[in-house]
Write a protein that binds this DNA or RNA. Structure first.
Length: 556
RNA sequence: GCGCCCGUAGCUCAGCUGGAUAGAGCAACGGACUUCUAAUCCGUAGGCCGCAGGUUCGAAUCCUGCCGGGCGUACCA
């Protein structure tokens, strides 16, 4: 509908130019928007104001010239007016909105799909928590955001892959092994001084106990270093299994689990380092090797090999991101916690050095989550305690509520997550508000069997059937969905879907309150039309919730 | 110190590429169920868009400075 209008406006402007009314032929692409106020029509354009400078004319004069030259052979418009400083407002024939119903009925689950991605390959890497402890709520938000982004991009015609990067190498894995080993020693009754920088959580004790109880290894006869390594492997694998289970329960699925260690095993890290030493991007200073990131936009150069010979995380990250692009991705999106903020510039520099466009690598920084109960903050220590893990939260409030709330704000905004609120089955809880629409409509549909419904009804007939204001508003909201999806994908902002769904839900509830779908003294045609209308609402609610990874229940 | 993000209604937050009288949810107040799920709806109230300049037909939006808050700034991960 917008395209048609834009076309009409452009044609009118050129016609006005040919007639000499508009001096310049520089006609910009008309921007059309839905005015905030219904009194300003269905669509409006500010093109006259935009052109004012070039045309050297008053905006309202330009608007007049355009309106005078509008051709509307199919009678789309019932009224056109010039308002304010030079807006042109368009009032559409109401029956035009009915076309959206047919469109959604035809497209079903595919309504909202677009091809703006044009088949470009995108990788979304998210969660990627170190396998040194269970996922906490912060990871949950990252998981919800990453998963929704992937779904959005997929819906917009990108070829998407979801990846989890496992930091299964390096010092912290050894620390994990040491922690586990020491707890094991404690169980054996040895006096142990448990260091501060070891992992304190009770889950480590549980692991040690399992090693003992299930007799998984003969640690006692091993050299201490071997025992620590064995513990490290065992603990990391077990914790990773736990992470996988937590994600599964949260309905998050990754396509690829990528091991950091594999980059060492196949010499990728080594090769990358050697390569950049040759190109001069890596140099030696103070016994360490530095990557020249400052020349590429970072604040300073960064160490990749420490003077003790050990590589830093940055070294493997360079190899990792090179690997990503080598796999043919046009865009690489990393979802990180906000505490990794300072890492972006150096990673972009590395991507630049690899010879890729810095803009092909994007980082979505997800701010932290404040867990509350009845408005009171809960302590978020790494030590075992009350509700801090993702699993606990999902257990308590359910995956639907958790995901919806995680996505209910811009990812860059800190998020308060109130456990009690998330569980409430009242209007304070936004999840239910949206899901309720779906359930209500399912209920109507199942009751519809007992009603006389016109069967030879045809949406192609251009007669006006749905003419109530609540119906028109609903259809307008439905029509907006595809561009909401596109906008959310373009800006990588899934929260837009949440806001949209609340609007659509609100429009539906208003309609529902004022008008009956199934009513005895109503024409079968109107019944059928309304039935189709609510079915399309259900469809769009379903499609939107699917993007968020939230279920659409048939009854509540 | 430097860099990034943020400051919008009592609270939590939207606000697209600058557009008309700045929006929503919650909380508050007042109404609406003999009807397809009241987990709902309708109405009222609530604002110096942190402050001060600048850009222009027009600024919550763009630029500069200041104030206030968060984060980052490792031969850590």
């Amino acid at each position: 509908m917008k395209e048609i209008l834009a076309e009409m406006i452009t044609r009118a402007a050129f016609k006005a130019h040919e007639q000499g009314v508009l001096p310049s032929d520089a006609i910009p692409q008309p921007g059309l928007e839905e005015p905030k106020q219904e009194a300003h029509g269905d669509f409006s354009t500010n093109i006259a104001m935009v052109m004012a400078k070039v045309q050297k004319m008053a905006p309202r004069k330009i608007a007049e010239a355009i309106v005078d030259n509008l051709e509307d052979p199919e009678n789309f418009l019932v009224k056109t007016e010039i308002a304010g400083p030079g807006f042109i407002n368009f009032y559409l024939r109401p029956s035009l909105w009915q076309r959206v119903v047919k469109g959604i009925l035809d497209k079903g689950d595919e309504y909202g799909r677009s091809q703006i991605g044009a088949g470009q390959k995108v990788q979304v890497e998210f969660v990627s928590a170190n396998p040194t402890g269970p996922l906490h709520v912060g990871h949950g938000r990252g998981a919800a955001v990453g998963d929704a982004l992937a779904a959005l991009l997929d819906m917009c015609g990108f070829e998407v892959e979801r990846e989890y990067y496992i930091n299964d190498s390096g010092r912290q894995i050894r620390t994990l092994g040491l922690s586990c080993w020491l707890r094991y020693c404690e169980l054996k009754g040895k006096e142990v001084d448990f260091p501060q920088d070891c992992y304190q959580g009770d889950y480590i004790k549980d692991l040690a106990k399992r090693i003992q109880d299930e007799n998984l290894a003969d640690l006692d006869s091993m050299q201490e270093e071997d025992a620590v390594l064995w513990c490290a492997r065992f603990a990391a694998n077990d914790i990773l299994d736990g992470i996988k289970k937590d994600l599964k329960d949260f309905r998050v699925v990754h396509d690829v689990w990528f091991s950091e260690q594999s980059l060492y095993d196949d010499n990728s890290v080594q090769n990358a380092l050697e390569h950049f030493e040759k190109t001069g991007d890596i140099y030696e200073k103070d016994g360490a090797k530095w990557f020249k990131t400052e020349d590429r936009g970072d604040e300073k150069d960064r160490v990749v090999v420490r003077n003790n010979g050990l590589t830093t995380y940055f070294a493997s990250d360079i190899a990792y991101h090179k690997n990503k692009f080598d796999r043919g991705f046009d865009r690489v999106i990393d979802v990180w916690g906000a505490d990794h903020h300072g890492y972006i510039a150096r990673m972009k520099a590395a991507v630049d050095a690899v010879g890729r466009n810095k803009d092909a690598f994007e980082v979505v920084l997800v701010k932290l989550v404040n867990l509350l109960r009845d408005g009171e903050p809960l302590a978020m220590t790494t030590r075992g305690g009350t509700f801090e893990t993702l699993a606990d939260v999902v257990n308590e409030v359910g995956a639907d509520a958790a995901r919806f709330i995680f996505l209910s704000r811009h990812y860059e905004s800190p998020l308060d997550f109130d456990l009690e609120l998330a569980k409430k089955q009242t209007n304070e809880n936004p999840v239910w508000y949206v899901q309720y629409v779906h359930a209500r409509i399912c209920s109507i549909e199942s009751k519809a069997k007992d009603f006389p419904v016109s069967l030879d009804f045809d949406w192609d007939r251009d007669e006006e059937i749905l003419k109530e204001i609540e119906e028109i508003r609903l259809m307008k909201a439905l029509a907006r969905y595809p561009e909401i999806v596109e906008g959310a994908a373009r800006t990588l902002e899934p929260h837009r879907i949440v806001f949209y769904l609340r609007e659509l839900a609100s429009a539906f509830h208003s309609f529902y309150h004022d008008h009956m779908v199934l009513k005895e003294d109503q024409t079968p045609v109107l019944t059928k039309a309304r039935l189709d209308l609510v079915t399309t609402v259900r469809q769009v609610i379903r499609n939107g919730l699917a993007l968020l990874g939230v279920s659409a229940p048939e009854s509540m």
